[in-house]
């Protein structure tokens, strides 16, 4: 900017998967009350992301953690191109923000590869939830993302171990 020199605008490449980026963009334009309404709307949809009858998964992780008020089950299905699909079960005491984040992440990360999911920075969460809600309740908003990344990591570790085992059967 010095001497009147303009710095050329750099088109930043999104660091979020496409689906998640569109959710971030949507929330970025909403005033506070509409943001809350949208979060409640996503929370209402959380049950749509429960496992469907007959579905099979590569990994299932159902547990009650101290970080959450009730049991959360995360189910991961990975296709031949390493693209992930998540299904999530939520206990009745799970808080609304966690329900909302569940629906947002199941939708936003759908068909991203497990490697891409592990690289997703968590800074999108405040962009969706908003500074006000992050400030008043910080403890609940990162939980589902952490669980999803956790199951992806386990999947990758096991797959690498399996590949290593194939290369060296003595392992």
């Amino acid at each position: 900017m010095e001497n009147g020199t303009r710095i050329p605008a750099i088109e930043a490449e999104s660091v979020y998967p496409k689906g998640l980026q569109s959710v971030v963009d949507l929330f970025g334009s909403l005033p506070e009350q509409e943001r809350r309404d949208a979060l409640v709307s996503y929370a209402d949809q959380a049950r749509k992301w429960e496992p469907k009858q007959g579905e099979s998964f590569n990994l299932e992780d159902v547990r009650k953690d101290e970080e959450c008020t009730d049991t959360v089950g995360v189910f991961l299905k990975v296709d031949n191109e390493e693209r992930a699909t998540f299904r999530v079960t939520l206990g009745p005491q799970v808080q609304t923000l966690t329900r909302a984040m569940t629906a947002i992440l199941c939708r936003g990360l759908e068909h991203s590869t497990v490697t891409e999911i592990l690289k997703v920075p968590s800074d999108f969460v405040p962009k969706i939830v908003g500074g006000e809600l992050i400030r008043v309740r910080s403890q609940t908003v990162y939980y589902v993302l952490t669980r999803m990344k956790g199951i992806c990591k386990v999947y990758l570790d096991r797959r690498r171990a399996a590949i290593a085992g194939q290369r060296n059967p003595l392992l």
């Binding site: 809350r36 979060l39 609304t96």
Partner: peptide, 9 residues
């Protein structure tokens, strides 16, 4: 509430 969005639901 504890759950900050519960009223909205």
């Amino acid at each position: 509430n504890e759950d900050v969005l519960l009223y909205d639901t």
